[in-house]
Write a protein that binds this DNA or RNA. Structure first.
Lengths: 124, 124
DNA sequence: TCATTCCATAACCAAGTGGTTCTATAACAA
DNA sequence: TTGTTATAGAACCACTTGGTTATGGAATGA
């Protein structure tokens, strides 16, 4: 799977509130399918489908304990999401608007210097 | 909108590679709809739809500059996603498996002490 | 062996998504 | 006014998604 399609899978898996609730439960420790299904007014196959989505996104993995298939969180996929978000951190940490404007100016300046007539950045 | 439905909207908006590419472009600075559409082999209305999804998720906002509707990134929605992810950080930073096991033990111990018949944890 | 428990798969359905083309509208330009 | 440019909306389509019920299968226990 390409990095892009892994992000597709992770983000779309995380877009469902039932699946996020399942992850919240798993953050407390491993759980079986029936244990995970219990809080929801939803059939067991529906939960199994959600778990399949989470597993294919790499957000959980499943073991074997007799008939039970205990689920646990897998950190790696979360880390990839976090890493992607990292690229946008500056947009919510303080001075983002100014930095944005700066980048626009830099780009404009580069374009102008290519075409040979340098221009002053407009007033801040 | 509830915090949960805001996360729904943000995650599902981020699940599409075209929309993530649009955000990557906007990270370089504001851009109009046609500018954003240019790199894609896709109709302009398709891009407008994607922008609407991003806007409703709060990931971008749109201004007005004559006929153009310049788009820019809005950090707040990103921050909410980041904040949610924060709850799972321990799963990809080092000692997560041990901590997970610890939590399971704590839970089991609490349950047993309630019901009054303490049991040994089964072998690791 | 036979029943039970836990889970997955199959088949189905309504609603949502991501694209299309065609058309409408808003702001500017002549 | 008339045309042009940038964008949005409507109607449509194929495909996906999230749920259902019914069934199948693997592991355990009697």
């Amino acid at each position: 799977m390409t990095p892009a399609s892994r992000l597709d899978a992770a983000f779309s898996a995380l877009a469902d509130p039932t699946r996020r609730a399942i992850l919240a439960r798993l953050a407390l420790g491993e759980a079986s399918v029936l244990e995970l299904a219990e809080p929801f007014s939803m059939s067991q196959p529906a939960i199994s489908k959600h778990l399949k989505v989470l597993e294919q996104a790499g957000l959980i993995s499943r073991g074997r304990d007799a008939q039970r298939r205990p689920c646990r969180i897998e950190g790696k996929a979360f880390a990839e999401v976090e890493e992607w978000l990292e690229n946008y951190r500056r947009f919510w940490e303080g001075q983002f608007r100014q930095l944005d404007a700066l980048l626009v100016e830099l780009k404009a300046a580069r374009k102008k210097s290519k075409s040979g007539n340098a221009r002053q950045p407009k007033k801040a």
